[in-house]
Design a protein around this nucleic acid. Structure first.
Lengths: 117, 117
DNA sequence: CTTATCATGTAGTGTATACTACACAGAACA
DNA sequence: TGTTCTGTGTAGTATACACTACATGATAAG
């Protein structure tokens, strides 16, 4: 069960079919790691990389950084900081939303965005 | 600037004034760490302990674990898991709420709790 | 056909995390 | 006054994190 690595490999090979600049080596080079390291990550021989590297990889592959971080078992540090500033409020809210359906959360997002206050 | 250590020490000595079972040694013993370690944490000579130890310490001192974790620069792993399961939704919501006032977030919490849907 | 590019195997590195273990001097208590 | 309890100083440890460096055999390009 190596969801992260499998996903990265699939996505990279998908892009590679259109553009040979998406070889493991070249992608590794562009995100600033050794090819051997990326190879091991894709095959699940090594755990997902750091937050910074994961975000660079997400951008390189045209994927959502938050989603990619989630697959890496992480939560973006900027989100963590927002929570840490008002821990009681956010802890309550998030735990309440745990069992709510997607559309309910989406509605909240829209409500706040549109200022339906 | 060692907010965590200072806070723990203050709170512990507060409790100790009423109950001598709140000596550094005895608290350390109850939460399962060495006295020297807790001493260093309180004085900011060592960084805050692990999530588990921080939560045990919070309970011991009658404080809110989420608040204590926030002071330790951490976010509870159960909250992180909730976010990781639906990263896009929660990332959007949390970032939107970043600059909203407390009462706005509180209102959302209540809205969800009371099922004002 | 040979040169470059490809992925991968093996080994090693520096730093951080999260502690323990022991020893010591001063205060409190009986 | 001696035993016990207090906090703290010093030293060391085990594990995880986040990689690099080099070598090798296979594949593709010119």
């Amino acid at each position: 069960m190596t969801a992260f690595g499998d996903h990265v490999r699939r996505r990279r090979e998908e892009l590679r079919a259109q553009d040979r600049r998406y070889s493991l080596r070249q992608v590794a080079r562009r995100i600033g790691v050794e090819p051997a390291y990326l190879s091991k990550i894709e095959r699940g021989e090594m755990p997902p990389p750091s937050e910074e590297t994961t975000v660079r990889l997400a951008r390189e592959l045209g994927e959502d950084p938050d989603l990619m971080l989630a697959m890496a078992g992480k939560v973006s540090s900027d989100l963590q900081e927002i929570i840490r500033r008002r821990p009681r409020l956010f802890a309550d809210l998030i735990r309440q939303l745990k069992s709510e359906p997607d559309h309910a959360i989406l509605r909240l997002v829209r409500e706040v965005r549109d200022g339906t206050w």
